[in-house]
Design a protein around this nucleic acid. Sequence first.
DNA 1: CATTTTAACTAACACTTGTTAGTTTGATAG
DNA 2: CTATCAAACTAACAAGTGTTAGTTAAAATG
Lengths: 190, 190
Amino acid sequence: MSTPANTRKDEIIKTAAKLFKEKGYSAVTMRDLAGTMGIKAASLYNHISSKQEILKDIIISLAETFTEGMREIKSAEISSIEKLRKIVKLHVDITSNNTSGMASLNNDWMHLEEKLEYYLTLRTDYEEEFRDILIEGINAGEIEDSNVDVMLFSMLSTLRSLYIWIPKKEDLNPEELSENLSNVLINGIV
Amino acid sequence: MSTPANTRKDEIIKTAAKLFKEKGYSAVTMRDLAGTMGIKAASLYNHISSKQEILKDIIISLAETFTEGMREIKSAEISSIEKLRKIVKLHVDITSNNTSGMASLNNDWMHLEEKLEYYLTLRTDYEEEFRDILIEGINAGEIEDSNVDVMLFSMLSTLRSLYIWIPKKEDLNPEELSENLSNVLINGIV
DNA sequence: CATTTTAACTAACACTTGTTAGTTTGATAG
DNA sequence: CTATCAAACTAACAAGTGTTAGTTAAAATG
């Protein structure tokens, strides 16, 4: 029982993430959220302490999962290209499991308040480790020696947008998607 | 004098776009906007008719500019790969001129209300014409015959995220960026 | 059975929201 | 000089905001 049972709080957070994805954090009221769950707004406060806390719970846990994944990939004894493939898989897997949460992470992180600084640290570190892998690949002759920032930006943009795209293509399984996407990102389209 | 002089309304819209980019449409109040301009909220209404109208003005004009650009590219007598390069340039140029507006277009389109349907039509049409160019390229043997949706998604995600990235790299001029980005998107990174 | 826990409720609060009405001020045009 | 106009102002409103306090009913626990 490492993962705690489905508590009421978890249901609230899950529902909130769905609403946040559709309208954004600021446009979702506690009455919206309560209404969707079939209860009154005040009842939410038996389970959560504030609207803010919901957002924090959604985003920080996801961000930490990425940090954890990157840590493992970084220390693996594989080629840089293989590391990139693992990064793609990391994004596909996390996003497949929680597209709503990923929408909040991408669009509503600026409303984090107390946890904003922490989130930004995680994000910056993640990007730098991503860049390090690219540079490592260039030095090893595996990756073309052109503009690293453009490569990094292009890959990250695509991976961060997965939350929009995955729900529209439920037929494609994560394995296949991860494979196709890696190929396009690494080898291009020609 | 095809473009009308810098009116007060234009200044309001420009300021609003900047704020919308930072916090999102819903989190920006008319008092925020007025405060940033050094006036009172009520004074805004001498120039605009509603908050809603500001968002509409920002997004729809941009969306129509993309539609216009795509129309020209589609009918050009050039290879599919050249068309893709022109699409990249279209995004880089429009985004360079208005990163704030592009943030609203990407993140706040769902708050358009009356103009939402129209916006969605423009967006869907744009994506379909983009896809048609890829298919055309596959049929002509210029582009690899793998998953079209993955290619389309990857390219569009990157192009739509330019608004985040361009402001951080003011040193890179649009020409150079467009060139680098086309290479990465088309040829990959190996 | 008695008690604690879970999860809902009603009522209300202090504050913020977009917006309207009516007014004032300084510059421009006839 | 007078009239017009652009652009600001004050004051206010009705609706909606997140949240708190206190209560109730049913289920789980001892």
